[in-house]
Design a protein around this nucleic acid. Sequence first.
DNA 1: TTGAAAGCGCTACCAT
DNA 2: ATGGTAGCGCTTTCAA
Lengths: 341, 341
Amino acid sequence: MNKTTINDVAKYANTTRSTVSRVLNNSPLVNPRTREKVLEAIDVLRYTPNKTARSLKSGKSHVLGLVYSQQQISEVLMNPGVPGMIKSISERAQSEGYNILLITSAGVDYKSYDDLIMKHSVDGFIVSGAMIHDSLHEVLDKAKIPYVYNMKYSESKDDCYVTFDDVEGGYLAAKYLLDLGHRDIKLIVGDVKGTVLSFNHSRIAGFKKALQEYEIPFVDSMVLRTPGDMDSSYHFIASLFARERPTALLLSNEVTSTAALNALIDKGFSIPDDVSLVAFGYPDFFRYTRPSLTTVGLDIVWQGNHLVDMLLQRINDPGSTPAAMIKKPELVVRESTKKAP
Amino acid sequence: MNKTTINDVAKYANTTRSTVSRVLNNSPLVNPRTREKVLEAIDVLRYTPNKTARSLKSGKSHVLGLVYSQQQISEVLMNPGVPGMIKSISERAQSEGYNILLITSAGVDYKSYDDLIMKHSVDGFIVSGAMIHDSLHEVLDKAKIPYVYNMKYSESKDDCYVTFDDVEGGYLAAKYLLDLGHRDIKLIVGDVKGTVLSFNHSRIAGFKKALQEYEIPFVDSMVLRTPGDMDSSYHFIASLFARERPTALLLSNEVTSTAALNALIDKGFSIPDDVSLVAFGYPDFFRYTRPSLTTVGLDIVWQGNHLVDMLLQRINDPGSTPAAMIKKPELVVRESTKKAP
DNA sequence: TTGAAAGCGCTACCAT
DNA sequence: ATGGTAGCGCTTTCAA
């Protein structure tokens, strides 16, 4: 450990802690000559201020907690979109003078999670949570710790989140397929502990809206649920196509999309000749599958950056409730879609 | 912020900080009745100890820094293996009572990096670095901050790292292809700022060893360098096959492998009928390509766990230099390899 | 312009 | 078994 403290610097520069501290904090209340001496001392002694002491004094850690729910971490961290978000969050945070503490144990047991939150080691949380413990926001609110979500999580009006317009996303995708003449379309959504997540509800709504424009009645069997992991999804799609022959699939995430693609290829279906595929997710990922997939692209870099910005706003101006940010997704047409057969 | 401090608890329980502290730290030197009262106070007041204060006192932050070099972060964080490693590192660390601080700015400029290191906010570093600043370990050694690498980085004997036996990996892959009758094999390695990384040197050595067993002379053109990003690699492979027709490729990472796979498919080559492919990397990733790829699998979960363990050993027993850990990779045969045409 | 001193929340040593 | 107190390294009044 570098045991050089502010006192060592003061001694070397023939002054006191107070003055050194002023130099460190760019106070104008210090004689240029003294400042010189102090800076020299800092340089010679290779002194750097102890961040922990500063945190204790200021009550701010300049650390942001990035929370992944347990169920997310198992599948989703493998997900190509997540590292991109981690990267954008981390880099934005660092450019603002904050570090990222990665928290992946959330939800394992509630108590440990609570503990972690309450130890004051972070100034706020970015919660990336499909199925975060329900009372999480109560705990956070009670503790007055700022937080932001990557999706609309509760129905509470003053929720802070940065996410995408999934109604629009579902609409865009469905309309595109309908335009191509598809009529037997399945929307495949992830099933998390028996629940359909809010963004999937939105996509379903967008899907219905498009159907309505085409005066096609919605029937329940147009929306199918599958567990989120690769193998389950694979078998789900394979057995679906053993029974039925929809002409187009709307896939709600990267894992399901990959699984569907593989299952269809393995069963001898041709994409897009037999089936058209549209995937929701990280825009670039599906450039690198073969065939490349038409994608409702979610701009994860934008999301990561704004999650940080919004959280910092809440931290710097406690009590403020920044308005949720919602971005329209963009349809990227690639090789996996064509006119209905 | 939860402003409840140890003093509040002491007051509520009609005792002093000292006693509360003893209860918190499970000291036996406290009357059961008093302990009860204190615990009740803690419960009622929803008190949790301030981690920052503890860190200041103890000099330990219970935080581990996970450093990604700038050049890695741009491509490699997108890489499916990296999230797996983050996950395993993070979970192991948490189970040992440590948190992970994600540092992705390393190398942007050396000064900021140095700063970060010196602020004492972490107890040690896990450095995942292809091209970490050369003098990094000098800085760390001078500051007496423990660290571990995910690869053999310097030639120094007492280097701490957890990595894979890449000589064996190169050997396994080459031997397997030679056994299948391949004679025109190219080993494609990433070129990082004009340098071939040590693990690739090892793979080349393993490759040569296998050739030797088959009494095939090694020629330089058997090893080819490509920049690490997806698009460059793609064009590199495409133009290679415009000129030559090797019957087998050894691909040194996930990005290059994906690029090669796509380039070959797009140019109309059949895998494995025209070309056999062997990829180095995260074992599961190449299960999900089509065709799935024969892989020299690197057990990233093992690596992540042991990086944490080794770092904690250095932290808990300063001055100790745990022996490097090296695991033999495993060859997973899948669809991308067959007898030479 | 500078220094002295208090205190952030906690632990640990020394009394009692 | 318990309380008083010093001090971790820093910032920030308040005085000088």
